[in-house]
Design a protein around this nucleic acid. Structure first.
Lengths: 116, 116
DNA sequence: TGCATACCTGCGCAGGTACGCAGCTATGCA
DNA sequence: TGCATAGCTGCGTACCTGCGCAGGTATGCA
């Protein structure tokens, strides 16, 4: 199989066959980007703390998240906006309190993985 | 239980009990940082491509990784240096070729998780 | 010994990100 | 109606990160 794109077909390789295997292993660029973006959302300690708190204790209000993590309100709000835009969390308004929860299955799977 | 640190004990909470649960759910700050750093290493599409290629096809040389990912050599080298400093990959020198492989079990587990 | 190759390193720039501060909107209560 | 609270937003700053370019080191071959 010749999986090497034309624009880099002239480059030297150590083992051309392994290169093709590697390209196959990497797979679709879009899917790769999707996973990289997911990991990026978990790559900040504060966001990870928010997500773990939500995932392990269920729906929580913004103020409570701020106290639990030691962040101040705008920082929590901004982090939640980012996560909400990515479809990772969703907020439900109850009066003037908004309770958030984790709704993305892939991220939930990753959070389960953080047990040690 | 009173898990709220003294410096934020005077803050308003919606449900104090849930806050304590959340703090317990977040757990140790050091462990949290460790996981955030791990996710950070996977949060770049190029690094993730390198790691997937190494994890799924076994040891590969730097040049081959460069061709497979479309990066140029210094970029691959720098990414591998970062991963090596974090203890995620290790390189073995064979003549003038260095073949890298993934050696961190936690990262291997995360890479297995990227199947969809 | 001379030369090409495989890999590494330093440097600088462009781009992105997280956070604090100040201020806004909306809800509920007296 | 007046006021306090819960949450959101905009803006500016400081910081970090990824990459390309140029150049350096080490290995193998003629």
């Amino acid at each position: 199989m010749h999986l090497v794109p034309a624009d880099r077909a002239d480059r030297r390789t150590i083992d051309g066959h392994r290169v093709c295997e590697a390209i196959a292993a990497i797979g679709d660029a879009g899917l790769l980007r999707t996973w990289a973006d997911r990991f990026s959302l978990l790559a900040d300690a504060n966001r990870l703390a928010l997500l773990l708190a939500l995932h392990r204790t269920g729906p929580l209000a913004v103020s409570d998240l701020a106290v639990a993590t030691g962040m101040n309100d705008p920082a929590v709000s901004q982090a939640l906006r980012l996560l909400r835009a990515a479809g990772v969390v969703a907020g439900e308004k109850e009066g003037r309190v908004v309770r958030y929860r984790v709704v993305d299955a892939a991220v939930q799977g990753l959070l389960e993985h953080c047990t040690a």
